[in-house]
Amino acid sequence: MRAHTEKRLVFWLFLAPALFAFVMVILVPFGLGVWYSFTNWSSSPRTGAGIAFVGLDNFVRSFRDPSFLYSFTITTAYTIVNVALVNVVAFALALLVTSAIRFRNFYRAGFFVPNLIGGLILGYIWQFIFNNAIPSLGELLGIAAWSEPANLLLARSPTALLAIVIAGTWQYAGYIMVIYVAALENVPVELHEAAQIDGASPWQRLRAVTLPMVSQAFTITLFLTLVNSFKQFDTNTSLTNGGPSAMFMGKPIFGTELLAMNIYNTAFISNDLAMGQARAVIFFLVIALISTAQVRANKKREVEL
């Protein structure tokens, strides 16, 4: 009996520091955040603005705000395109660097390097490429259309969104590639040999052997890309900063303001911290729901050897 108590005491003592940190930096701020989303909190001593409970007002107003609905729509579109593109590119790169080409270790390192550049800096680099490098190249090659101001990717909101996808893919594909490489190298060679003897073409082998065998990797990569796309903020800020504008529900609004940026702008440009917090809560629920659904769906397809 005594040994048991001592064991439990030791258990909790060792757990205490980590638990304390977790409670203080995760649970308490999270709980506070949820509470603030039901108030009119503003974090400034504006006269006559004490904290008051306002119920669901912030949530209702959020769903009536065209800019929030628009951000939701384009973030979904962005996520779909970005998840698809990052994974296709990453998988293709992984196949490339696990095949028998020369300098494959060099390529592996090369494709991974963009991931080491911070998203903010990367956005500025790509802004320069889209706004200056491509037009200059067009002038050099005599292709006038490339330097036409109206044709610049960042001049129209749908193409500007695509520009964020391109910059995001360039950054993230190398990282996802590494996960695929690890998975591809774990596919037993015998399976491929057996299929080859049975007369399977390379395409059939990819579909019937490789893909099912790396489905575990898909669970991880899809989760990572999905969550990352939804949370896109830094490249968004530095590359487009929400622009150019677009019309939505009869109102001119920022055309590439993804959800994270919309939350930020609501809190800090509109000075409506409580409403920003409410949107962050909605944001959290959506990400949690979608990513749980995705992991479940992917788990079902995993193959155990």
């Binding site: 800019s67 109206a150 001049a155 129209r156 622009g243 150019p244 504008s245 677009a246 019309m247 001119p252 609004i253 920022f254 702008n265 440009i269 509109s270 000075n271 409506d272």
Partner: peptide, 18 residues
């Protein structure tokens, strides 16, 4: 809020020729 989130996109729309 009014200048940055309401007016700025209107000017931008006009500048873009939209």
């Amino acid at each position: 809020d009014f200048r940055d989130k309401t007016l700025a996109p209107i000017y931008n729309q006009f500048a873009n020729g939209a």
